[in-house]
Amino acid sequence: MLDAYQESLLIFFGINLIAAFSFYLPFKTGQVSLGQAGFMGVGAYAAGIITTKLGLYFPLGLATSAVVSAIVGLMVGFPALRIKGIYLLLLTLGFGQIVQVVALTWDYTGAHNGFQGIPKQDNLLLYIYGVLVVIVLFFFRLERSSLGRAMVAIHGDEDAAEVMGIDIVRIKLFAFSIGAAFAGMAGCMFAHMTTYVDSLTFGILLAVNILMFVVVGGGTTFLGPIVGTIGLYFLPEMLRTLREWMELIPIEWTENSEFLTSAYDWLYDFFDFENEKRWIAYAIIIILMMIWRPQGLMSRDLVKRWGRRLTGSRA
């Protein structure tokens, strides 16, 4: 049904999407976190200890990664209540770096040799998309609940929300630690896919990528992270297939004309999107996206408008 490449593509897409959701939940309350990669690392190491060091089952490892990450999330989220904006960005960035240092120096999990020999999990695709279905349902319900509206209110104006009687401390902490739990599960899945993690796996670049998935996709509706992750994860992969598409052009079309042959060769060379060029294209797409739609591809207004058009009702 699926070959190994397609399956791994879907698995990593799912992991990235869970990670994007983990950023999206605290972001709903206005908390911008560069620490999601750090929480992924916490989850990966926690689950790795359960399955590799203690030899227990994968579902237990998954549950442990969620619980441990949620607790660490509370520990980071509580002091983070006091600060916002760039200060919170820097705090979570510092947290991510500290996770890396711990991973690099903790002998029990291999220190600088990395955490090796994590068992590869069968049916990981099912686990990932099972978790994703639960997460999507959670957000679908959340955005239609008073809790979801309270989160949007906190994002808009914290003081006004507090005056309205919203318990901002509890809601912000809830969002931050559940978000951390999502990230922890993503990290656990990642570790049981690659069978090896080290301190560099969950670095600042991963955290930045997660942030980009959500901001490019749009941070006001749960469709945003989905669209953003599809766009930013599959787009670079799709660029790699441009050459395969070119190879479908029959050779008779170009062989009679010298110009067409050279044009074909030039284009074929140009479409060498294996390494740097792929990233250059990716970067250009991101910059253009931010110029074109700084609020992200999907926004709540857009979704509402589409919903009205679908149901045929008028506003």
Partner: peptide
């Protein structure tokens, strides 16, 4: 990456400079 990006959305210029980061690094590698 700074002027064309609307800074009413505080994360947008941040993301576009992240784009520049990836761009510069990979052009340099190339």
């Amino acid at each position: 990456a700074v002027r064309p990006v609307d800074n009413k959305f505080p994360l947008a210029p941040l993301i576009s400079t992240i784009g520049v980061t990836i761009l510069i690094q990979n052009v340099t590698i190339m």
